[in-house]
């Protein structure tokens, strides 16, 4: 596989993102506003107590800062395939000697790199200075957190990839994507820290890919899971990525067949 075209796709999407300055500043503002709202809601719920069910307010704040921070640059374009099917440019894409999925990933990663530098970093600096974040459980845990965050992005991207395949059979995938995003927001811990979920819900969520996106990296950062639990966390992330991609590719083959057999 030639690497240079994919680097060019990523570079192009990085540069394109830099053209939309107002959108960029609004994005940072959006992250900070959501962060303040979530933190203030939990501060009110805590009612001045330092700990609830063994979870400190500082852990909750750190969860929100990390989850929303990661979310700010975990970019997936849910409409990449559907827009190409809609305007017919999928035909042009299919005739290119590069992988469609590789192109989609490179495009997303280019935007993610831009957001990491110009959205995540400034938002984190403001959040750390004015809200405060707990230090990582140690340098090793911080390294593992970064690794787990990368895998978390892989899980998020794979979910989007699979859901995008609905585009082959649906005229509009907005509803499907909205449902998917609600599940991700609620079950990944970025809106409600999963420590506060009832026991059966925690167990249930454990069987879904959602907690692998943000909650697993946050748990590692805070040292809430150690040793074999971390290995299990990584294993779950890898298994979900592989399973979702395999399923996605199977559906992709069916969708592609639909195009060449039925013409779209």
């Amino acid at each position: 596989m030639k690497i240079s075209p994919y680097m060019a796709f990523a570079k192009k999407s990085f540069l394109q993102k830099s053209a939309y300055r107002l959108e960029h500043w609004m994005g940072i503002l959006n992250t900070l506003i959501r962060l303040v709202i979530y933190v203030e809601i939990y501060r009110a719920l805590y009612g001045g107590r330092e700990t609830v069910d063994g979870i400190t307010m500082s852990m909750v704040t750190t969860n929100f800062i990390l989850s929303l921070g990661l979310e700010s640059f975990f970019v997936v374009n849910d409409y990449y395939l559907s827009s190409r099917l809609y305007d017919g440019s999928i035909a042009t894409e299919m005739l290119l000697p590069v992988s469609f999925h590789g192109r989609m990933l490179a495009d997303n990663l280019g935007t993610a790199a831009f957001k990491l530098i110009f959205h995540f970093v400034p938002a984190m600096i403001v959040a750390c200075l004015f809200i405060g974040i707990q230090a990582p459980a140690g340098p090793v845990m911080f390294g593992l957190f970064i690794l787990s965050a990368l895998l978390g992005y892989g899980v998020l991207w794979s979910i989007s990839f699979l859901f995008q395949m609905f585009s082959f059979w649906l005229m509009n995938v907005w509803a499907v994507m909205t449902i998917k995003n609600v599940f991700i927001n609620v079950l990944s811990g970025s809106m409600i820290p999963l420590w506060f979920m009832p026991g059966f819900m925690r167990t249930l969520i454990g069987f879904t890919p959602f907690e692998s996106i943000y909650f697993t990296p946050v748990q590692i950062y805070l040292g809430k899971i150690t040793g074999s639990e971390i290995i299990l966390g990584f294993a779950k992330q890898i298994i979900w990525i592989v399973a979702l991609l395999l399923l996605g590719f199977m559906v992709w083959q069916k969708g592609q067949k639909k195009i060449v057999v039925q013409g779209g």
Binding site: A8, G88, S89, A91, T92, P97
Partner: peptide
């Protein structure tokens, strides 16, 4: 093909041409 866009609406003509250059080496 008629009615099949070859340039992305977000890119300029030159960006599209350069992308082709890179895709086909």
């Amino acid at each position: 093909f008629a009615n099949v866009p070859v340039y992305s609406d977000k890119s300029t003509v030159m960006e599209g041409l350069l992308e082709t250059k890179s895709i086909y080496g």
